[in-house]
Structures are given as C-alpha cells and as structure tokens.
Write a protein that binds this DNA or RNA. Structure first.
Length: 506
DNA sequence: AAAAAAC
C-alpha cells in the first residue's frame, strides 16, 4: 500500500487528493507518478479502473505548475478515443488542479467550436481532446502544437480499433520531438508497439493490468433462450431484471438501434432506464451518464461506447442483451461491475444464433458460467412474428418499412400484457450452486470441439504471413517506389503493407 | 455483423 504522500507530490496537490477522499495510491499511480514527475516517458500497460487517469493528471499538474501558456499554444495535450473519456480526464483536472492557475480546455466533437476557440485564444495549459476535433481546430489554424511539453495518449489500443492511429501519428509529428510522453494502453498489439518505438523516448514500462480473464468477484450467468428473436430477448431481459436485486445496472446491446428499442421497451414496462450510444446528441449522452453516476438513473442501456473507459463507479449488474462481436468486449463489458473488489452479477442472453460468438467468449474467459433457466412462455414472443416467418425469424425488416412497422407493436402489444402480473412474470430461476457450475464433463466436451477453431487459427497465420512480411527485395522495392513525395519523412503508416486487400483479391 | 470519431 502506497500513500500519495510518498510519491513526491506537492502539498497543494496532496490536499486536493485528500479533499477528494483518497489516501492510498493504486499500483499504477504508485509506479507511474514518481517516474512521470522526473520528466521521463512512461509506457503504462493498464486497463480502465486501475486509476490511470490520476496517474497522469497528477504529475502533469505538478510539472505545469510553473510557467504560463501562450495563446493557441497549449503546453500539454491529452488524447483520448471517446468524448466521454476525454470529458472524464477534464473532470480529473478540474478536481485536482482546483486552486492552481492551470487552465484547461476540452476539445471534443458534437459541441460548438465557439467556446473551444475562445479558450484556445486565451491560452490553455492543458488540452484534452479527441483526435478528430483536435485536428479540425489545427486545420482551421486555431492551434499550434509546437509548445507541447507533455503529451498523453490514453487507451491507445482502443484508438487502434477505431482507426485513429494515423491521426495519432500526425499529432505526434505536430508536437516537438523533445517532450515528455505518457502513453497508456490496455494491450500491446504490434501496431501499438511500433508506435511506442517510433515516438517514445526510452520509456519506463509500467504494467498494472489485470489478466484478460475476468475477476473472481464477478458472478457470470448465462441465459439460454430457445429463439433468436428480439422480442423474446426483451422478455428474458425483463424477467432477469425483475428477478434480481439491482442497485444499478448496464444493459449492453450490439447495435445502436437495439439500444433505443430496449431502452424504450424497459421504460414502457415501468423501469428506470435510459439509452446511451454514439448517435445521441452529446449533451444527452453527458446528461444520461451524469444521472447514472449520481444514482438518479438505475438502468443504462448502452452500446459499446460505454464498455470501456467510462468512469462509472460501481455497478451491481451487467446484462449482455447481445453476445458481443468480439470476446474482448465481453471482458470490458462485465468489467463495469465487480470493481474495487466488490461483487457483481452479470447475465448474458444467448440465443441459438449466438453459438459462435459465445464460443469465443468462453474460450477467452476460460470459464463456464452458471446457466440461469428462465421459465417463460416463449410463444408470446414468437406469436407476433409468426406470420412473417418468411423473414427467417430474424426480424430485420428492409429499410423504409422498418420503423413504422416495428415500433408500436413492439412496445404496445402482447409483450406489455405479458408483463402485467409481476408474480407470474418473475423468473423461476434455477441457479446451479457455484461448485456445480462447471460440471467436469462439460470441459472436455468443449475442448473437443476446439479442433475446428484450432484448425482455423493454424491456417490463418499461414495465409497471412507471406503477405504481412514480403521478401526483403520486394519490401525495399516498395519502400523505394511505393510511396513518393515524402523524402525521408515518409509517415510510417504509409509504409504498412495492406495484407487484407491483397488476400481478398487473390 | 457493430461501435467509435470531424464538419
């Protein structure tokens, strides 16, 4: 246990920390803060929920305490992948830099340029931004990055997922090479490693990541339902919610449209729920999140915008309305609960159509979740759809007709009636005792199925390897002839071979 | 398959 007072922070900052109610530092804070205070680069391998935001804001505040920034020339820069995350970083500065002269500005999309420009003109010490809006300001000539002394990249691997790496490279190149860089990523895929090698200067590597597996304090439940039908899934979700003692919970869906439908449906059934996803207005996103944080909203229905990074203190339940497309996302989603050693319950609704993604999830977590059985009358769900079974039961109507057709019936009809008497609706939940959760026979059976996927994973590298790493002469030729006009300054990302396209054509 | 992010 390391106290903040041991880390070399100033009395003023320590007071701000104490005012926030903290005394002991998290492992990443204990390791990163002293290093960052010396001005060295930091490569932090840490997931969210490890306290990494404070791990870089605190030393930044200290190092920026002396000196002032000029107009349009921020002295430091924090890049985050999502607006909410950037907002959280801003909140951290607001909290810990209070009483100092440090000024900061939040540059994110979805809000007007005016206020952001005003702040830039006045001069800010800390710029917190998402890549798109930052570059937008830069291109409008509102911003110079040549005065940046400290640059932070938060959740780099997520930026990679979101296609931001070229932007990040560009931003790196707009800042002076002689600066301090604090670089955080939960994982280190090759692309990220390459980036750190190119732009970090002899960084101190600090690891505070939990393994990719899931915490012991999170009880994972699997809810198999017999039909891959959204209505049936909503029935199941309601039954789960009604059958659990929820303080607050997040319901994750794969699609934004589904988020809207599920949120509406829950509200129509008397639940305290609201939606959050990337198509909603920024002000609404923030308001909803704020209400959820304050405990004024019980159920947050979310796309994966909320899966990672968001600072939502303690959630008692996570519901996976859909099996996520990527197993990683599952880990992040359920990681919204069971934080700081508390216990959490998670439920995932699984339909016969989800077996593939489910396999991937189970393989990654290495766990066999408890199966929760819902004793519901599924015909209620199937009934409404039966007459249009021609649609392969998926209920994905063509554009145009979808809205008017789906909306009302979904909310108003048999479903609503089905919910009427609560006692009847409550799930007859048959929960296996923990020890019995993973019957030993189950494991080998699952293992035996593996050859199929193993065969796939074996031949995949074989197919990709020759593309990803062409023979030397070819590479040199490409380097000489493929990209022109940059001289020695060719951006590295232009030199990356594009295996997928080649493979697809071949 | 989907989501995220700039106007």
């Amino acid at each position: 246990m390391t106290e903040f007072s041991e880390l070399g922070l100033s009395p003023h900052t320590l007071q701000a920390i104490a005012d926030s109610g903290y005394t002991t530092a998290t492992p990443i804070q204990a390791e990163a803060i002293p290093v960052a205070l010396t001005g060295q680069d930091v490569l932090g391998i840490a997931q969210t929920g490890t306290g990494k935001t404070a791990a870089f804001t605190l030393p930044m505040i200290e190092r920026l305490a002396s000196g002032r920034s000029k107009a349009r020339m921020p002295r430091s820069l924090v890049i985050a992948p999502t607006r909410e995350l950037a907002d959280q970083v801003a909140a951290s500065f607001e909290r810990y830099a209070k009483g100092t002269k440090l000024s900061w500005a939040l540059l994110i999309g979805g809000v007007s340029f005016g206020d952001q420009e005003k702040k830039l003109d006045r001069g800010v010490d800390v710029l917190i931004a998402t890549p798109g809006r930052l570059l937008d300001h830069f291109e409008r000539g509102k911003l110079l990055l040549t005065g940046v002394q400290i640059m932070v990249v938060d959740e780099a691997d997520r930026m990679l997922d979101m296609g931001f790496i070229p932007d990040i490279e560009r931003i790196f190149k707009l800042t002076p090479p002689k600066k301090q860089t604090l670089f955080f990523s939960a994982t280190m895929p090759p692309e990220i490693t390459r980036l750190t090698k190119q732009f970090l200067n002899d960084p101190v590597r600090i690891e505070a990541s939990r393994p990719a597996t899931t915490g012991e304090n999170i009880a994972q439940h699997l809810v198999r339902i017999p039909l891959a039908d959204p209505k049936a899934k909503r029935m199941a979700l309601r039954a789960l919610i009604d059958g659990a003692e929820i303080k607050n919970g997040i319901v994750f869906c794969n699609r934004k449209s589904e988020v809207d439908v599920v949120a509406k449906s829950l509200k129509a059934h008397g639940h305290d729920a609201a939606a959050i996803h990337g198509d909603l207005e920024q002000s609404v996103r923030m308001k909803t999140l704020e209400a959820f944080r304050k405990g004024e909203l019980k159920l947050l229905v979310a796309s994966d915008v909320a899966a990672r990074g968001l600072d939502i203190p303690d959630v008692s339940h996570v519901f996976n309305f859909d099996v996520p497309h990527h197993a990683d996302d599952y880990v992040h989603r359920i990681g919204r609960t069971g934080r700081a050693g508390r216990s959490g319950d998670t439920f995932m609704i699984v339909t016969p159509a989800d077996s593939r993604n489910l396999d991937k999830v189970l393989k990654l977590t290495g766990k066999t979740p408890a199966e929760t059985v819902l004793d519901l009358d599924w015909s209620q769900a199937a009934g409404g759809d039966r007459q249009r079974e021609g649609r392969s039961g998926r209920e994905r109507p063509a554009r145009g007709e979808s809205r008017s057709r789906n909306r009302r019936p979904v909310e108003a009809q048999p479903e609503a009636e089905a919910a009427a008497p609560r006692e009847e609706q409550a799930p007859r939940e048959v929960r296996a005792p923990r020890e019995e959760r993973a019957p030993l026979e189950d494991r080998p059976a699952r293992e035996e199925r593996a050859p199929r996927s193993r065969a796939r994973s074996e031949d995949r590298p074989a197919r990709r390897a020759p593309e990803a790493r062409p023979p030397r002469e070819e590479r040199e030729e490409r380097e000489q002839t493929g990209v022109r006009g940059f001289g020695d300054d060719t951006p590295a990302f232009l030199m990356i071979p594009i295996p997928k396209m080649a493979a697809a054509k071949g």
